[in-house]
């Protein structure tokens, strides 16, 4: 998997997405994204931008509060795992059916 080690200043994210610093801080407090502090400046890992954008959409476009985002993030992880498992089992079943 590709992982970007690039650190993006928190302020740059706020400017780019037109969001408040407190929103990012709250996401961090809920354990939804990680903030890295270097020389008293806050940064976000580049590979977390997709997640951040998703949380922004959930909060600002769909009016979902932080507790809701937290629950959704948890359930989405479960959904993805289950989808992956179903997909894997379907493939296994296909192989089995082909053999019979």
């Amino acid at each position: 998997m590709h992982t970007s080690k690039e650190l993006i200043p928190q302020e740059a994210c706020c400017t780019q997405y037109n969001i408040e610093v407190s929103f990012i801080r709250q996401l961090s407090e809920y354990g939804l994204i990680d903030i890295v502090t270097v020389e008293e400046k806050s940064f976000i890992h580049g590979d977390q931008l997709n997640e951040l954008e998703k949380f922004i959409r959930l909060h600002y476009d769909l009016d979902i509060n932080m507790e809701g985002i937290d629950a959704i993030a948890h359930l989405l992880t479960k959904v993805r795992n289950l989808q992956s498992e179903v997909s894997h089992l379907k493939t296994r079943l296909q192989i089995f059916n082909a053999d019979v």
């Binding site: 959409r57 959930l58 476009d61 769909l62 009016d63 979902i64 959704i72 989405l76 993805r80 989808q83």
Partner: peptide, 15 residues
Amino acid sequence: YRKLARKHHPDLNPN
């Protein structure tokens, strides 16, 4: 719109 978007938003319905 908000109500339906929450139900069908792609972020909430992966794949």
